[in-house]
């Protein structure tokens, strides 16, 4: 019961924060200079990790799909199938998981620290709105940097797949030639949409969790943890719903099959 109440409260709070974010953005209150600063700070720090993760995710999928396709006797589809599965699903989900750990947890820890050391209260008392001054630029920075990192990560997964396929003795050239036969424009649109939605989720969740942290060092730790968990669950949910919407659209309009 308490679990459900907490969930409702969290979701409600996040929707209110999102409302305020959109409203303030349309009022032109975003300090873009600060956003760009933050993007560099968050984005550059996370780039290395994203590259490593992308490489390995691509390699894992290439390897696993190769083994499985051999079982079913369809290994000629390897390049396309592993790239397509990675781009549409496994890639965005796994890389978003890591980014929620890196970017999300970093943001929630930073905001949580500001809350428990009363920096946010000080801003309130000095006559500024902490949501406008602190949260708004961070939401934009996290959205933009997560989105860009996800796109970079997804590109690297392709590279990872190609490199690894060479390593396990599949001809890299035929692997690459196979990619455009299965990866449709629709799939690329879907993975870009997913990247953007995941970035937005990570931004809202981590800012909300940091903003509502209470109670000293323990409170900051709790905020980070619950931020990471909420992010992961929401990513899995929205991943499913976006895939479902895409498949409904495909059935309705017969798009996506090349």
């Amino acid at each position: 019961m308490e679990y459900i109440l907490n969930l409702t409260k969290t979701l409600g709070g996040m929707i209110l924060l999102a409302e305020k974010w959109i409203k303030l953005t349309f009022q032109g209150k975003t300090r873009w200079g600060f956003v760009i600063d933050q993007i560099f700070q968050v984005g550059v720090k996370s780039l290395g990790m994203t590259l490593i993760a992308g490489m390995f995710v691509g390699a894992i999928m290439a390897l696993q799909i190769d083994v499985q396709l051999k079982d079913f006797g369809a290994e000629s589809f390897l390049g396309g199938l592993s790239t397509s599965t990675t781009l549409r699903n496994v890639g965005p989900v796994l890389i978003a998981f890591l980014l929620s750990g890196k970017v999300g947890a970093y943001t929630s820890a930073e905001l949580g620290t500001m809350e428990v050391t009363e920096q946010l209260n000080a801003i309130r008392l000095l006559g500024a709105d902490p949501v406008e001054y602190i949260i708004l630029p961070r939401i934009w920075a996290v959205i933009i940097s997560s989105f860009l990192l996800l796109i970079v990560g997804l590109m690297v997964t392709i590279l990872g797949g190609v490199l690894f396929s060479q390593f396990i003795g599949v001809n890299a050239l035929s692997y690459i030639q196979n990619i455009p036969r299965i990866v449709t424009g629709w799939s690329i649109v879907l993975s870009v949409v997913k990247s953007f939605v995941f970035g937005t989720l990570i931004a809202i969740v981590s800012c909300y969790k940091g903003y509502t942290a209470r109670g000293g060092a323990v409170g900051v730790g709790t905020a980070v943890q619950s931020c990471a968990v909420t992010n992961l669950i929401l990513i899995i949910f929205t991943d499913f719903f976006l895939s479902m919407i895409s498949s409904l659209l495909q059935e309705l309009f017969q798009v996506g099959y090349l």
Binding site: T113, M114, T117, E118, Q119, N121, A122, I123, L126, G127, A128, Y133
Partner: peptide, 21 residues
């Protein structure tokens, strides 16, 4: 506890309220 904004300098901290109000 001082509750100073960690991300900006002392000057920015002191002038924060003057600007905000």
């Amino acid at each position: 506890f001082p509750a100073l904004l960690d991300s900006v300098s002392v000057f920015e901290n002191i002038s924060f309220g003057i600007r905000a109000r």
